[in-house]
Write a protein that binds this DNA or RNA. Sequence first.
DNA 1: GCACAAATACGAGCTGAGTGCAAGAAGCAT
DNA 2: ATGCTTCTTGCACTCAGCTCGTATTTGTGC
Lengths: 161, 161
Amino acid sequence: MRSRVNSEKPTVESDGRVDHVLDLLRESGGRVTTSRRVLLRCLFEESPHRTAEELGAEVQRVAPDVHMSTIYRNLDELERLGIIVHAHLGHGAATYHLSSDTHGHLVCENCAIAYEAPEDFFEELALTAMRDFQFVIDPRHFAVLGRCASCAAVEAEAEAN
Amino acid sequence: MRSRVNSEKPTVESDGRVDHVLDLLRESGGRVTTSRRVLLRCLFEESPHRTAEELGAEVQRVAPDVHMSTIYRNLDELERLGIIVHAHLGHGAATYHLSSDTHGHLVCENCAIAYEAPEDFFEELALTAMRDFQFVIDPRHFAVLGRCASCAAVEAEAEAN
DNA sequence: GCACAAATACGAGCTGAGTGCAAGAAGCAT
DNA sequence: ATGCTTCTTGCACTCAGCTCGTATTTGTGC
């Protein structure tokens, strides 16, 4: 199989980045397989946080017999290489995104909407954690749970009655 | 059965608090059962964060045929009444503790040690979240993941080589 | 092309969390 | 004490989200 598939329509830019990661993979003794290529393409496109299940479904739209266990193993491998990271957004499944795309998350416990918080959002907390506990926080790996503006308003309303 | 069992040895203080919660339970239409009494006693003793599994094991030491589903249902009920809250400390199971005991958590991703952070630890973050996203954070419900001092040191060492 | 290690598909199995239901017990009135 | 009602429980099962073992396929260097 050729290393560049032009018959599909992902942007040339993300295609180039996929190839770059595949090169890294090969250099580290890994192999370039269809499932990995497709998975990477999915990761480089659009939505920044998707669960393994969602990524699996997306991969299977293109390559229907890629098994979920393959998705999990590939996600692990990509994480080991530092290409992606996973985060736990509240109760459900972990979500994966590119490690270049460093941000934290604010997740509403009620409606599950997720906001992306910039890196400097956690600066203050990082300093306090270091000062009080000599603890190095990893704000990309956990979600800050709470209530989004509208859910908080609804609850305040309900409380008032 | 009498409402106070004097043949066992938990402190009179925690015993009193257990009875108080049992009263609340009864007032809200609930019933006082052995499993609930024992579970509450466990919750009022020692270690502030334990998983449902751990609490189940502890309850079963005293009352061997309390089923795990009962533990889960009772934890739910106690949470609904606002007696306890659960938090997600990293990857594994949720942990439960008394809601009077309000604190957040710092959990090392490597060695899983958990520090308890006082409420005002998250003050700055709460203000920032409100200002930037109109988001009300709930710092007791999630853990701040990262590296404890010693694990961070070990990793820095490894990195240097 | 060929050999060989690395990935894969498939399925079994696991943990944590919970549900539905019939049997059993708490609490109340008598 | 005795029903009676309603709440709880034990049990068996389910479900999501992963993880592992294994036989088979496939990428890659030669």
